[in-house]
């Protein structure tokens, strides 16, 4: 008779009446639900975090390239101005961003063999961007903190260099 009531043994098993079956299935289902949700949300968070990190590195790289270009332009402008006469004094001041994507940075003038570079560097993340430039006057290597940067030539020294701070 019970068989007739339930229709089939399967239905009797499916029916949410048997306390033992429900207990096992529910716990499993709950754990599965939480686990899947956790994996999904963690995945999303991780991906978004990666995207933001990548974007930040890219932005710092882009900004560093701009800072490098501007500094190189200033050094070459001073080279042109000072090249007119050996006893000249020339200073070109730059107003650069205080920080690159909230990271402090340094600007350096470097020589390697016969080549001259402006190197912009941040520590965390570690980004190094170098911009090549050409000058007629000799160059003295220097490193200054970002923001206020001056390209300087003094007739007494006879070399181009970078200085920081106000002029």
């Amino acid at each position: 008779m019970t068989r007739d009531d339930t229709g089939s043994s399967g239905r009797a098993f499916d029916r949410p009446g048997s306390p033992g079956d429900r207990g096992v299935s529910f716990t499993l289902g709950y754990v599965l639900t939480v686990a899947i949700a956790l994996v999904l949300v963690t995945g999303v968070l991780f991906t978004v975090g990666e995207v933001v990190r990548d974007e930040r590195d890219e932005v710092i790289r882009g900004e560093a390239a701009v800072v490098g270009d501007q500094t190189a332009a200033a050094v070459m402008a001073v080279d042109r101005l000072a090249g007119r006469d050996a006893g000249s004094n020339a200073t070109v001041s730059l107003d650069l961003p205080d920080r690159l994507a909230d990271q402090a940075y340094t600007v350096s003038l470097r020589t390697d063999g016969g080549d001259t570079f402006v190197v912009v560097r941040t520590r965390s993340p570690s980004v190094v961007v170098s911009t090549p430039l050409r000058t007629r006057l000799p160059v003295t290597e220097a490193t200054v903190a970002g923001s206020r940067v001056r390209a300087v030539y003094r007739g007494d020294d006879g070399t181009l260099t970078l200085r920081g701070g106000e002029r």
């Binding site: 933001v52 974007e55 930040r56 890219e58 932005v59 882009g62 900004e63 701009v66 270009d69 501007q70 332009a73 200033a74 402008a77 070109v92 730059l94 650069l96 961003p97 690159l100 994507a101």
Partner: peptide, 16 residues
């Protein structure tokens, strides 16, 4: 970050 990038591009167009 994108705003910072925009600012950098803006600085790049200013020249000396």
């Amino acid at each position: 970050l994108l705003n910072t990038a925009l600012f950098a591009e803006n600085v790049a167009t200013r020249g000396l």
